[in-house]
Amino acid sequence: MTSAIPARPVSPDLEPDTTPGVGPGGPSDKKATAQYSDRVRAERRLGWILAGPAFIVMLAVTLYPILQAIYESLFQFRLTAPGEREFIGLGNYAVILSDGVWWSALWTTLLITIVTVAVELVLGFALALVMHKALKAVRGPLRTAILVPYGIITVVSAFAWFYAFDINSGYVNSWFAWLPGIDSDLNWFAQGPTALFVIMASEIWKTTPFISLLLLAGLAQVPDELTEAAKVDGATWWEQMRKVIIPNMKAAIMVAVLFRALDAFRIFDNVFIMTNGAYGTEVLSLLAYRQSISRLEIGLGSAVSVLLFLCVLIICFIAIKLFKVDLAGAQGGK
């Protein structure tokens, strides 16, 4: 990553000058080691003075709470009965892991993650290809259209999809009544599979633009000469895709998939609005919310939060170790 930084100014003694409070750099014509290391030290100090506040704030808003959650997960503690706080070690974890609710929420979350990411990858890739190849005249309108779902509040998307499918206020049932299984009596939100379908549709609609923009950046890095050469050699469109384009943007695809997978894994808004976790649509984030915020079971809720965090770590670990995703390359190699 450091090597990717474009040329820095040749003489570093300009730097301290640009920021007050560090003092002017020494005379730059002397190359004495002592002075050079002074300058290095000054630069390092300035680096941390500038980057430090952001770094500390990031740790304060995440590291501290998660440590607190780990600590609180070891207690049986309900906010409504603060006097009965009791240390129970890993007891909360035993309760959660031996409960079917946790496992069913975990499977639902995994199912949503896998299905949405797979569909988004295909759809996002198609959108990226369209934007990549588009005529100049339509490039702007295309980009604008694709960015709209990205900017829209997830809760708004959830309501839009919910109302369209809702048995009372929706029009989907009457529009698609000709399809087998769909009629005016179909209540999409009264059973798991149909409810999950709408939840995933909303999630996919809202987040595909993001993945397609990442893939677009990856596409732009595939050298044109390679595709041209393949074309000259008589490769079909599909062969060009499979042998030239996709292998050359593998890094971008992996990064996009990992980010979206981690994002999908914490799905909350769509489920909360559409079913509130009923009919087997409970997901992990909602389970944690229900324990801590609704039932005020801080101990149990903290334990669910910690487990959720561990799941994310495991996903990251698998991605980095098994699939060799280079997160540092997430910058598109710039």
Binding site: P65, F265, R266, S285
Partner: peptide, 19 residues
């Protein structure tokens, strides 16, 4: 750290902050 914070499950921070 910035990367790790951005993929952090938000709900995991909520319980301790709530308290």
């Amino acid at each position: 750290t910035a990367l790790a914070v951005s993929i952090f499950p938000v709900i995991s921070i909520v319980t301790p902050l709530f308290n």
